[in-house]
Design a protein around this nucleic acid. Structure first.
Lengths: 134, 134
DNA sequence: GTTGTATTTTACCAATGAGTTATTTAACCA
DNA sequence: TGGTTAAATAACTCATTGGTAAAATACAAC
């Protein structure tokens, strides 16, 4: 029930049981009892997890007689991946280069204290479009 | 307090305020009041969010007199990104599958124009009823 | 020292989340 | 019909979360 899609996606992924379910569905579609079998918890608990995943758009449920086959719909993960990808430089970039950037900022601010700092290199064009502060 | 790191990371990201804070920190380190200023919530609320981010390893907090400067530590995002990346093919192939499906429909309709279109591949039974494990 | 500023901590609250058992719905089979 | 299986729903418990206001802590400046 989170308003924005990204929040719903991350919240759905913030549970090891649900991530394991997605991992199982990556191998192919599966029924609820099949998905539940590896876990110690009861079937209604799995049913709840599936509902969370469905509301986040991560799975789709069909109907086959009394079975409710679940299928993976990884599309929301694309948005999550591209959000995270904005920060890729922060773990890929060498420490020296980040340090050099910060020192450059400090140098520029020492030169022209009234001027606003430039944005970080990789964050100028792809600002997050959602979750802006009120 | 989630046991595994991936759960803590996704849980920390499942909040628009926290994601916005990370977005702000991507531009450079910042103090708590600076980070809080765009939001209408109180300072202790921001302090709690920062604690969540810190426990997830997404930020580091230093000390500068009475200020507690926060810095982005995007390393946990690398693990999150690589987990999500397992599913990349599932969203990259979706267009191909849809295209293949549409072409198949056109082919069948060209053969037997009066016949009803089959259901989308997603939820059709792959085999008649007795292919279920028992 | 006292005062002021930055931040955290301490209760406290309402809402949500994850789990349970028990019941209900839906579909098949005999 | 009735019986069985698959799955969802209902109703409940308990822990966690996100927010608040108020008090406490840490430091700087006077």
């Amino acid at each position: 029930m989170p308003a924005d899609k990204l929040t719903a996606t991350f919240a759905a992924l913030a549970d090891p049981t649900r991530r394991a379910i997605l991992g199982q569905l990556a191998k192919g579609q599966s029924t609820v009892t099949e998905l539940a079998s590896p876990f110690k918890m009861t079937l209604p608990a799995i049913s709840k997890h599936l509902k969370v995943l469905e509301k986040a758009g991560l799975i789709e449920r069909g109907r086959d007689a009394q079975w409710r086959p679940c299928r993976l719909k990884a599309k929301p993960l694309e948005e999550a991946a591209s959000w995270i990808d904005q920060y890729r430089q922060f773990w890929e970039e060498s420490f020296d280069r980040l340090d050099a950037y910060l020192q450059e900022i400090q140098r520029q601010e020492a030169e022209t204290p009234a001027a606003p700092s430039p944005a970080a290199p990789a964050f100028t064009r792809s600002e997050p479009t959602d979750d802006r502060p009120q």
